[in-house]
Simulated scan of single mutants.
Amino acid sequence: MSTALLEIVDVSKTFRNSNEAVPVLDRLKLTINQGEIVSIIGPSGCGKSTLLKIVAGLDVDIEGRVLLEGEQVKKPSQEKGFIFQEHRLFPWLTVERNIAADLSLRNPETRKKVDQLIKLVKLEGFEKAYPKQLSGGMSQRVAIARALLRNPKVLLLDEPFGALDAFTRSHMQEALLDIWRENRTTMLFVTHDIDEAVFLSHRVIVLDPRPGRIKTIVPIDLPFPRKRTGSAFQDLRTLILRALDHEEPDKETYTI
Rank of each mutant, 00 (worst) to 15 (best):
N19G: 13
L6D: 13
L30C: 05
P225L: 10
G42E: 10
H87D: 14
W92N: 15
K227R: 15
A166H: 02
C46G: 08
L25M: 09
I214P: 02
N183I: 03
T238D: 11
Y254G: 05
I32F: 00
V142C: 10
L105A: 07
I41N: 02
F126A: 14
P108W: 12
L117C: 06
E96A: 14
V218K: 12
L28K: 11
A243T: 09
G162Y: 01
P219E: 14
K112N: 06
N98H: 09
S49H: 07
K215E: 02
K48M: 05
Q72P: 02
G57D: 01
G81V: 06
R228H: 04
N107A: 06
T229Q: 13
R237M: 05
G57M: 08
L25Y: 03
F15M: 04
S170Q: 08
H192G: 09
R106Y: 06
S231M: 11
N183C: 07
E174A: 15
T168E: 09
G162M: 00
E69A: 13
K215Q: 08
E7H: 13
K251W: 01
F15Y: 13
I194V: 15
I214L: 07
E96W: 05
T255P: 01
R111G: 07
R213I: 06
A100F: 04
Q78A: 11
G136R: 02
T253H: 11
P211G: 15
P209R: 11
V9H: 15
W180R: 11
D115P: 01
P76N: 11
F189N: 11
V95G: 12
E159A: 03
T94W: 06
D193M: 03
L157A: 04
V190G: 00
F90A: 14
G136F: 06
L5S: 11
P209V: 02
K53I: 03
R88H: 12
C46R: 01
S139E: 09
F199S: 00
E247M: 12
L30W: 00
K80S: 14
R150I: 06
D195S: 10
D195V: 03
V38Y: 00
I240Y: 02
K119T: 13
L52Q: 10
T255K: 14
G137E: 12
V60E: 14
T168C: 08
L51K: 06
L123I: 05
K75A: 15
A175D: 12
T185M: 06
V38C: 06
L6I: 08
I179T: 09
G162K: 00
E182V: 04
L25T: 12
E247P: 04
Q140V: 03
D208S: 15
G81D: 06
Y254I: 13
I240V: 14
L5C: 10
D115Q: 09
V11W: 00
S12M: 06
T253Q: 15
L28C: 13
L149W: 04
V11C: 10
F167T: 13
R16M: 09
